[in-house]
Computed example of a mutant assay.
Amino acid sequence: MNQSAKIMGISFPKLTLNESLQILNDVVNRNKSELFHVVTGNPEIVMSYQSDQQLRKIIDEAGLVTADGIGIIMVSRIKGEQLPERVTGCDMLIRLLEMGNLKKWSFYFLGADEQTSLKTMDIIHSKYPKVTILGRHHGFYRDEEEQRIVEEIHSLGPDFLIVATGAPKAEHFIYKYKNKLNAKIAIGVGGSLDIISGKVKRAPLIWQKLNLEWLYRLIQQPSRWRRQLILPKFALKALFYKEKNGGNTIKQ
């Protein structure tokens, strides 16, 4: 049985959220020095992968690529590949915080605006008191501040580096400094801090179950309509894309 579904050159492992979390739990427990990079792959990432050679290298070398986006799931099923479910950056982060509260994991958060970052930390402190927040920084830093942020992360050595600066900026940052960050696992989580802080309201569960979370977000943030135009383009291209052998796999 094929253990992954290939979508426009990217191999998505056929893993549930729980199975993905187990992999990350095992990585933390192994105490390896090499950074484990998790890419949450949505249609935008897949489309950028086609033309961004650096992003292609990043994804091919990633420890784990998850199917973050109902478009990925739908295309896989139409092509007979059957990815089991979405594994989004937001869902993964919330579950990691729940697990971290039991296992006393440490986190560093990079991303969102200053007010949202601070509010998110307050909420995490309240809901997950046994999680250690080693540090945080907003995502609107100047270029000349970047090295200092990297040095701070390195000195703190978190179990998880959570980067919420948007894709593919987060992926490029993690890859650029992967040998300097001194974190066990790094994950780009898009706008997850906006959701945890309450700045952006996540779709109700019924919308999520109906695979209409994208529509809910568009209603909440009409300015996203230009970004949403990529979805039909992705669907058409992905359905007729001729896949080749090879590609990324889970690296443990």
Rank of each mutant, 00 (worst) to 15 (best):
S117E: 05
I94A: 10
F109H: 02
S117G: 02
R77L: 01
M92H: 00
E81C: 05
T120W: 02
L102Y: 14
K119H: 08
E85K: 01
I73W: 05
L97W: 00
I72C: 08
P84W: 10
D122C: 14
R86I: 02
Y108K: 00
Y108G: 02
M99R: 14
L83I: 13
G111M: 06
I94N: 06
A112W: 08
T116W: 13
G71I: 01
I123S: 01
C90W: 01
L96A: 10
L102I: 14
L97S: 01
K79V: 07
T120A: 09
I123K: 02
Y108S: 05
I70Y: 14
G80L: 05
P84I: 00
L96E: 02
K104Q: 14
L83E: 08
E81A: 06
S126Y: 07
K119S: 05
P84G: 11
E85F: 01
K104V: 11
Q82D: 15
I70D: 15
H125G: 08
A112C: 13
R86E: 05
A112L: 12
M92R: 03
L102C: 13
A112V: 10
D113A: 06
T116M: 11
F109K: 01
Q115G: 03
T120E: 01
M92D: 06
S76W: 03
I73M: 04
P84T: 07
K103F: 11
A112P: 06
I73N: 05
